[in-house]
Design a protein around this nucleic acid. Structure first.
Lengths: 131, 131
DNA sequence: CCGCATCCTTAGCGATACTG
DNA sequence: CAGTATCGCTAAGGATGCGG
């Protein structure tokens, strides 16, 4: 009989895991910007404030639900700010905060890597699938 | 009666969306590296080849299923290579390809941004939630 | 114009058990 | 040691319709 059972080992691993994840902000960040529309919204706001309706046009194909949800999350995280003009009908403008803007270089770096290297990835994938 | 119905407009948006997505490799990339374990595996392989079992220990908390799945996807995308030594028991080593290594600076950039800025994000979130 | 609420379908992921 | 197969849960996300 081992000093620790498999279940205990799993528990320990889970604790290590939690600790690792907790001290790994990168994962948290990827959880954010990895979600389907975040990068597109950030890029959509890159060249100045935009209205909700403008964004939904700029980011063709986004459902109104996901746009709102994405914007809410970004606002909550302090990456964008939301300004409501109480006219009739209402007007809502979104804008990158300083924190949000500081993320743009990263998003652009990702985009650049992707633009120059994704073709290779596609090629590798086709070759792999051909086997 | 409008020249185009709402349904038609949605269809057009969907086509635009497809075109946009198709020509937007960054999204594809984020779909990859955004998944839960990819960045951790890349970092796990950053300082040299590793055996499957090594990786599963380095990346505490990853299930064996997800580790295999992640490794397979990365291999398929040409980001890592897989070397099998047909001993008994088998030995499998994984290693970053050149393409995979070229992704490391990006992963590290993400990690650095996260380490310096996630506290601000957390703070923003708490403040937002306090309302 | 903006966004919430509801329903429903799929994809991600973990747990477990089994093979060479 | 490395990998596969199955089950079941949960979260993501799209469609639609209502309300300020």
């Amino acid at each position: 009989m081992p000093t620790r059972t498999a279940a205990q080992l799993r528990e320990e691993a889970a604790r290590d895991y939690d600790a690792f994840m907790a001290e790994c902000p990168a994962r948290h960040l990827l959880d954010r910007i990895g979600t389907k529309w975040v990068s597109l919204v950030l890029l959509g706001l890159a060249d100045g404030p935009q209205r909700d309706s403008d964004l939904s046009r700029r980011i063709a194909g986004v459902s109104q639900k996901m746009l709102t949800q994405t914007l809410r999350n970004l606002e909550r995280d302090g990456l964008i700010s939301r300004a409501v003009t109480p006219s009739v009908p209402v007007r809502v403008d979104y804008e990158l905060t300083a924190l949000g803007e500081s993320l743009l270089p990263l998003v652009n770096a990702i985009r650049e890597w992707a633009e120059s290297n994704m073709p290779k990835v596609e090629a590798a994938r086709e070759q792999y699938d051909a086997l």
